[in-house]
Structures are given as C-alpha cells and as structure tokens.
C-alpha cells in the first residue's frame, strides 16, 4: 500500500488527479461499483480463471494483520504478487486444496463504495465487504474494509491492488481459504 492510498484509507483528503492522467478517462463511482460487484460475484462463484483475469501484471493481493506494518518484514494473512496469485489459483484448480474441498458456499455484499482519488494510472476505490461462508464445520461471518486500485486497460477495467483489512485481522482466525 502506498503512502497516498494509506492516507486515503485513514480519512485524509484524497489527492486530486495527477499530471500523468490527462489522457485517461476518469473512473466514476458507478463504473467502479460495477467492477467490484463483478469481482465479488466471480469470487463467490469460484470462477477462478475469470477472477484471476481481473488482475494486472503488477498485482498486489494483500490481507494484512497490522495495516500499519511493513509487509516485507511482518507477517500478513495474504501477501501475494501476481505470481503467487497464479499459484493460489492453480492450487485451487488441483482439486486437492483440502481447505476448499468442497468449496466454501459464499455470499458477499459489497457496499459503501467511494472513489477516493487517482494515483498515477490507478483510481483508488474503497468499499466494505461482508461475507457469509458456509462449510460443514459451520457458518462464519467475515467483514472488512477493502481498497481497490483500478486501472483502465485495452481489455477493460483491471485491478492492480486489492487490500482487505478484516475487522478481526489481528485476532485468532479460522481458515480463510476462499478468495476474500
């Protein structure tokens, strides 16, 4: 997470569009929300390849324990670059990812979508997610504040960053083996 995005999440005023975004059509809140809903639906439905295709090559998929810590020197719940996202998806595809066999039944709500500003070529979007996960062991409720960085590409909108700060990120958590 860059400093700018961090400030945004913390509530400081959003930066205005940078100089190098002149040719990019801004991403509005409706367009951003449509992307977030689609991403949520693909994750819920375990449409793994379609979900993976939403990422840019410089992807960062990050679920911190302590949102203020440096992920290079501190433990995280998920800290995936593009290569590790691919590994995660491949593992799910093997059918031997036991923690997702059978896959969790998922139903998530994405809300409180706001466009916070622009960082270079990316638009920073914040939202809240609430997820109900049902497995044989029982039903679990997950919730967190999400930051997306969305980028307009020739293939449509893509995400370069997805950070999910769970409300209970630094407490004991049961396995979280679906795509959060």
């Amino acid at each position: 997470m860059t400093v700018a995005a961090q400030q945004i999440v913390d509530g400081t005023p959003a930066p205005t569009a940078g100089n190098d975004t002149g040719t990019v059509t801004p991403i509005g809140v409706d367009e951003a929300a449509q992307f977030l809903y689609r991403e949520a639906r693909l994750a819920d439905a375990h449409e793994l390849d379609a979900w993976e295709a939403l990422w840019t090559d410089d992807a960062l998929y990050y679920v911190p324990i302590d949102d203020t810590a440096d992920p290079m020197t501190s433990m995280s719940i998920i800290f995936d670059n593009r290569g590790r996202i691919a590994t995660r998806i491949k593992q799910l595809h093997t059918g031997r990812r036991h923690a997702q066999r059978p896959p969790s039944r998922l139903c998530r709500t994405v809300g409180n979508v706001e466009v916070l500003g622009v960082e270079g070529t990316d638009t920073v979007v914040t939202s809240v997610v609430q997820i109900v996960e049902s497995r044989e062991r029982g039903t679990r409720f997950w919730a967190g504040r999400v930051t997306h960085k969305l980028r307009r590409t020739d293939d449509g909108l893509r995400m370069s960053t997805k950070k999910v700060v769970l409300v209970d990120s630094d407490r004991p958590l049961l396995s979280l083996s679906f795509l959060v």
Partner: peptide, 8 residues
C-alpha cells in the same frame, strides 16, 4: 515479524 493467529 509478529504473529498470525490461526484457530482450528
């Protein structure tokens, strides 16, 4: 590096 807490 801090701890992740994984409950089972």
């Amino acid at each position: 590096a801090g701890f992740v807490q994984h409950e089972v």
